[in-house]
Design a protein around this nucleic acid. Sequence first.
RNA 1: GGGCGGAUGGCGGAAUUGGUAGACGCGCCAGACUCAAAAUCUGGUGGCCGCAAGGCCGUGGAGGUUCAAGUCCUCUUCUGCCCACCA
Length: 834
Amino acid sequence: MKRYNPKVIEPKWQKVWEDTKIYQAIEDKSKPKRYVLEYFPYPSGAAMHVGHVRNYTIGDAVARYARMSGMNVLHPMGWDAFGLPAENYAIKSGISPQEAVAQNVANFKHQLMQMGFSYDWSREINSTDPAYYKWTQWFFILLFNKGLAYQKESLQWWCPHDKTVLANEQVENGRCWRCGNLVEKKSLKQWFFRITAYADRLANDLDDVDWSEAIKAMQRNWIGRKEGINITYHVTNTKTNNKITVFTGRPDTNFAATFVVLAPEHDLVQKIIKQEIVPKDGPSHSKEVEHYVAKSMGKSELERQEEGRIKTGVFTGLYVKNPLTGKNLPVWVSDFVLAGFGTGAVVGVPGHDMRDFEFAKQFNLPVKRVVVGPDGDKSPITKAEQVQERAGRMINSGPLDGLDIQDAIEKMKDLMEKKGMGKRTKSYHIRDWLISRQRYWAAPIPIIHCPKDSAVPVPDKDLPVVLPEVKSYEPSGDGHSPLANVPEFVNVKCPKCGGKAQRETDTMDGFACSSWYFLRFADPHNDNKAFDKPKIDFWLPVDDYIGGAEHAVMHLLYARFWTKVMFDEKLIDFDEPFTTLRNHGMILAPDGKKMSKSWNNTIEPDNLIEQGYGADSIRLLELFIGPWNQSANWSVEGLGGTFRFLQRVWTLAQEFLKAKENSKGHNAELETQIKRTVHKAVKKVSQDMTELGFNTAIAALMECVNELYKLKSDRNFELARSAWEEGFIALSQLLAPFAPHIAEELWADLGQSGSVHVSKWPAWDEELVKEELITIAVQINGKIRAELLLPATVTEEKAIEAAKKDERVQKSLAGKKIKKTFYVPERLISLVTD
RNA sequence: GGGCGGAUGGCGGAAUUGGUAGACGCGCCAGACUCAAAAUCUGGUGGCCGCAAGGCCGUGGAGGUUCAAGUCCUCUUCUGCCCACCA
């Protein structure tokens, strides 16, 4: 008898699948299309571990099930290969990024192949291939021509370790997302994509996609749209006319305003320092303000965090008038006000805002109260805990008195607009996407700077702007990429006037390349266009996008933005790229920590395969270990369990194949039992697959095999040959999405032609699935007292009659009168006594 | 501070959405096979009491609704993730 040996069968079938190209996707309109995509990986020098493998296993199970269910499936794979790790490796080792990436890609591809994933490798793409980034550059020019790519000098996040600027999204707690070093602010001329122009659509359209609420919330939170009002206050004590505009979402509390605070970066603050604005009725505070601003701007992000919530600030000597009350409000400067949000100025309402309260306490500013809670308590606010009040009624607020907060907000906005004090507006947290990088290993920005014509896009015929080979990849740190040291690259003629000009030497953020790769898979080898529209029309949008939550705000937001731009350009007919987004849970090391090289706790599939477990057992555990969207700790013992299960399937099938030649008559009851067992599994697995219930689907398969083990014997194989055979055929199909190699081997052993992976998913017979006898529980006053084994066809009357006759029921009733009776078909009977 | 989750045996997790809590797997215990071990197969396995039949308790905690609550409601404790001086 053949032993189950994954080391033999797995490479064998992988070769067959490759040779027969069974996973190749073609535009066949006779079947509904399904585009299943996992985020294309970054091929790092470190090998892929079982955590990464889970993502692909989920995607592959979805793709394989869709394929067997009669869908035309596109399931492609490629490489997101630009970026710092390859470049830093090059600096250390002297091996060029081009070479290192080629090696890493080969390694990753080998790892994916040995897991038996059903990718259409004919569509493999690589973001660092000039044939690919040619079109990334083409899209840059499209954005440029639409005014959506622009250059601006401003203060930006700068990572002193990686020597490049970073996008807002790439700064985490004041640290670089790549290397973890503290970032600084540096004033540089940089390229931006105007994602803010799409902020409303990016927020609104989240309503229409099938994504988890968690990810939607993260995106909404990042876009940070807030409806409010810009209120303009006039400065009362300067000779010149000066105004301060503040943004607020709570204008209802304005009767309690007691001060105004400016961010240190605010324009007016600079004018105060330069003494362009001075109070006419008192001393100038310009020196104090200058001192405070200098100190505050010199603080690192870390220092600010260490200070916690302790408020600092300085009085400017200026006052503004609150037209509602006629009272003057002092104007302060403090770094708790952020220059980047709203107008960079806030009105201080310490009675109804925690930060304002803390600031007021620090500098002895008055605290007023205009909202009372449901308890009607009107006592003055003296503690920070009393500040938050979401529900309540207005007091001391003239025309607003008696209104609840929501009504008061709207009424105050109306009032302010009527009086010319303010204007309704929206404020956003999202900033334009900074895409310049001062590093080598990335796509060059296709712009030529001409003294006469300023920034000129590289003409289409000259694309791609190929990344030149250089001797040193080391970034200079002076704000220029290493490309600035390549005169042949830099010095060119202006495409417009033909005069001397210089190429842009900044490169593009790697997220630009990944903002459209899912489109390229529809037409991966097109030299004349980024893609052919009919092919996009056929395959896109992506039906199932499977990836980790780490892409929640960066990649997913950028890709949606590019998609909307292309939609507006009529290049494509949809404006959301990913219909369904599925965020898998992370696989942690057995110790519960994240798998990483530095913890030295990574588990790689290569070793497990080498040890003899095989890809199928690994794949099975990735799915069986828990719900696909929850994280789980990898379990070495668990892998033994899934291996054992496959071995049991194998042994059972081989024993049958050996015995089946001697067919000796029929046993109808045995045949029904076998069929019922298998059909129950077909039903359960089919239903679970539609909701991605992989763990319970696999449990059902295990249960099925356990039951078949109880029925198996040489004699039973002989007495129900065809039932067993049909059963094994169905079993190999049910296993196919999870354990494709053993499924294919069984399929072949059973003499089936073709591949199990393009066979038609089995159907179940509802009549067969039904049990003949069912167990009905009997509750008396809410407690289970008996279980009745009754025919499935039993009527309510008969069931209740049987319950009342039951010895244990009678004992429990002890002669009491039954007041009420409940009957749940096929489940239970509930009897209630006095 | 804001947003979104979660809490079920020794462990990972099931539970037709209000209807027999603990499917399936791991681990553990026992038996078969073996000179022995491994492997494999079979059975058992929430806690407490009991020889047993059976009984009582049990889904973080406290209440409530209901014939019936892991599931619904109120309060509460702990915990994970994301964002965060966002006005």
